[in-house]
């Protein structure tokens, strides 16, 4: 403490007590800042040293480089801006915002103004913020589009694939997601919507608030509920919400005493591999567990353990075998 800023102990004590009384000027605080950040780290038992070391690290915090890109886009008519990648290894370059090519295409098709398109490839997930502050997590192989004058009238987006929406509340301007013939209308809420081209249903799961969902006939879906639209029979029905609907985003799988049939369906969605039970009776066994960031092997080992079974990987799929659990 002796060598720094030509300050003796008395002066330091004066300044310090003034500091704690809230009476120091900015200049005096700058002197304390210099003093403490020049003193050796072993003085950390001193609360003043600790406070000013903390302030120094705080002053050095800056937003990420990706943030600069987002801000850059603000004055280009405020399109959706990229947020943070969920997959670290995938870089921003992978995100394609097709402004011109597809824009013209939709100009002709919908005779509306320019469309913004955000798309993801296999294994890619991104999170974007729309001009109305709605946050959208986009799962892999998905295309999300929205109008240039998005905010002026109704908030319309078009989805092919899967996304989780946290819709910014605005009762005057409903938010609509169009998935083929099905539309999902909300004012402010959070929900997961899955509508891949190669699947038979469009699946909605509501986390917060209330959603209006369907094609010609629409249903109201509340928090904790889900709805499935059957694309073959064009019918909509409500279901309990699937707790794993947005597992792709949270990396968490929850099975609350679920039938193995449902467990395997969720695992198929999550890991993109197929499962089969040697004895179909196994599919009615129930399983309860929660996984975070787990691999398929870890989960199967847990299932084996709880159902006294085994698993093997054959011909591109996992085969589960074991005794029928009803004997227990």
């Amino acid at each position: 403490m002796k060598n720094i800023a030509a300050m003796n102990k008395e002066q330091l004590d004066d300044l310090t007590s003034k500091y704690y009384r809230g009476k120091t000027s900015l200049e005096e605080e700058a002197i304390l800042f210099e003093h403490y950040n020049g003193s050796p780290a072993n003085a950390l038992s001193d609360s003043g040293k600790a406070q000013f070391t903390y302030f120094k690290t705080k002053r050095e915090e800056e937003p990420t480089a990706a943030f600069d890109d987002r801000v850059e886009l603000l004055w280009m008519d405020a399109p959706a801006t990229k947020a943070i990648h969920l997959h670290l290894m995938l870089r921003i370059a992978a995100v394609v915002i097709v402004a011109l090519g597809l824009g013209w295409y939709f100009l002709a098709e919908k005779n509306a103004s320019v469309m913004h398109t955000v798309s993801t490839t296999t294994g890619e997930q991104i999170r974007i913020v729309l001009p109305d502050s709605t946050v959208v997590w986009i799962n892999e192989m998905t295309v999300l589009q929205y109008d240039n004058n998005f905010q002026q009238q109704q908030r319309n987006v078009w989805l092919k694939g899967e996304a989780y929406f946290e819709v910014h509340s605005d009762t005057l301007n409903p938010f609509m997601v169009h998935t083929g013939e099905v539309s999902t209308t909300v004012v402010g809420t959070a929900f997961n919507l899955r509508g891949y081209d190669n699947e038979k249903t469009i699946a909605l799961d509501v986390t917060h608030g209330r959603v209006r969902f369907g094609a010609n006939k629409k249903v109201d879906v509340l928090k904790g509920q889900g709805a499935r639209f059957d694309l073959r029979h064009h019918r909509v029905e409500t279901t309990p919400s699937n707790p794993n609907a947005n597992a792709w985003k949270t990396r968490q799988l929850i099975f609350e005493d679920a039938a193995l049939r449902d467990v395997l369906r969720d695992l198929e969605h999550y890991f993109h591999v197929s499962f089969e039970a040697e004895d179909p009776a196994l599919l009615h066994c129930h399983f309860k567990a929660t996984f975070q960031n787990a691999t398929v092997e870890e989960i199967l080992n847990a299932i084996d353990y709880s159902l006294h079974g085994r698993h093997a990987f054959q011909h591109g799929k996992y085969i589960l075998s074991g005794q029928n659990c009803k004997e227990k």
Binding site: K58, E62, P63, F67, L74, A83, S133
Partner: peptide
């Protein structure tokens, strides 16, 4: 941006939400 970001982060205690917030302010 730096000042707004640090302020938002100190209030929200979350870096990503702080960035979203600053974007909204901008």
């Amino acid at each position: 941006k730096g000042a707004l970001y640090r302020f938002a982060k100190s209030l929200l205690a979350n870096a990503q939400e702080a960035e979203d917030c600053v974007q909204e302010i901008f």
